[in-house]
Amino acid sequence: MDSDTQQRQRLLYLHARTPSVFSTILGYTLIEPVRGYQTEISASEFEWPYKTVHDAIVDGWQVVQFPHLQAPFDDKDLDVVGYEFILQKIQSYPSAT
């Protein structure tokens, strides 16, 4: 690797229907490791890159955090949507970006 490039961590937050990696993704956030990058809610039809967490794993993403399941169980109240998986991909980026 030359000095003009860096190894950087791409992040992917996937909110799955259940704690299973095979369940449908309900939420999607991609964080690109470049300066000034911003996420944005789509005001048009959003095209989902993956259907499940497993699809993302097959595409080379690695899970770095599985959903926390230690939260108090409540059989009446509803809180956040889905179960959060955090994934990463390490890739080379030009240092200037």
Partner: peptide
């Protein structure tokens, strides 16, 4: 707790 959500299934502009 919503800070890590961007696009959510069923969202309606």
């Amino acid at each position: 707790r919503m800070a890590t959500y961007t696009n959510i299934r069923g969202q309606l502009p």
